[in-house]
Amino acid sequence: MRKTDKKIDNKLRGVLTDVCDIALETIPGYQWITHTVKYDAFPASLQVSCGFASADAIEQLQLEQQDVVLKKLIFKKLAAVDINLKDVNKQVKLVVAK
């Protein structure tokens, strides 16, 4: 990993930790957040996954449109550190935690 890649990764970890802390307190069924990235195609290659307790928790989240709130939170927090997602709906996934 190059030095610049490490700096980006540190920013990502900090932001996603903040998002995780907020989501744990405010979103029912939310459990964790993680990311994958290919630094040679950053930020388009960034994929953020949010883990939930069950498919029902994700369905309820979407019914209440809280998924939009979560995605906006991720987008805004990343933008605050100059990381701009190209398409938040494709780059943020809601998954059932295993």
Rank of each mutant, 00 (worst) to 15 (best):
D82T: 07
S54G: 04
T17W: 00
K7I: 05
V19T: 13
K98A: 13
N10T: 13
L85T: 02
L16F: 07
D40W: 01
W32S: 15
F42A: 08
D56V: 01
R2P: 06
E64I: 07
V81N: 02
F52V: 01
Q65E: 13
L24A: 08
K77P: 03
V68E: 15
A53D: 12
A97W: 12
D40K: 04
K38Q: 12
D67F: 05
K93E: 14
L16E: 06
D18K: 11
K98S: 13
V96S: 04
D9Q: 15
K72N: 15
V37N: 10
G51M: 08
L46K: 09
D18F: 07
V48K: 06
T26P: 00
I58C: 06
L24G: 04
P28Q: 08
F42E: 12
K11S: 12
L70V: 15
Q60R: 15
K93Y: 08
P43S: 01
V19K: 06
I33G: 04
A55H: 14
T34Y: 07
T26L: 11
H35G: 02
A97T: 12
K93N: 14
E59Y: 06
S49Y: 11
K6D: 05
K11C: 08
S49H: 11
I33Q: 05
K38V: 11
V15T: 07
A23C: 15
A79W: 12
S54R: 02
Q31D: 02
K93G: 08
E59L: 08
L70P: 04
A44T: 14
L78W: 01
A79V: 10
F42L: 06
N10R: 11
A41C: 01
L46H: 08
Y39M: 15
K3P: 03
Q91T: 03
D56K: 06
F75D: 07
A23G: 08
Q62R: 14
V88L: 02
I33C: 05
L46N: 11
R13H: 07
T17R: 12
D9A: 15
L94F: 15
V37I: 14
W32P: 01
L73S: 03
L78A: 07
L63Q: 15
Y30K: 03
S49P: 00
K3C: 02
F75Y: 00
C20W: 06
N10V: 09
F52W: 05
K71I: 00
L46E: 09
Y39H: 15
V88M: 07
K77Q: 15
L94H: 14
V48S: 05
Y39T: 13
D21L: 12
I27A: 11
D21K: 07
Q31F: 00
F42V: 11
F52R: 03
V92G: 04
E64P: 04
V69G: 00
H35D: 14
K72C: 14
D21R: 10
N10Y: 05
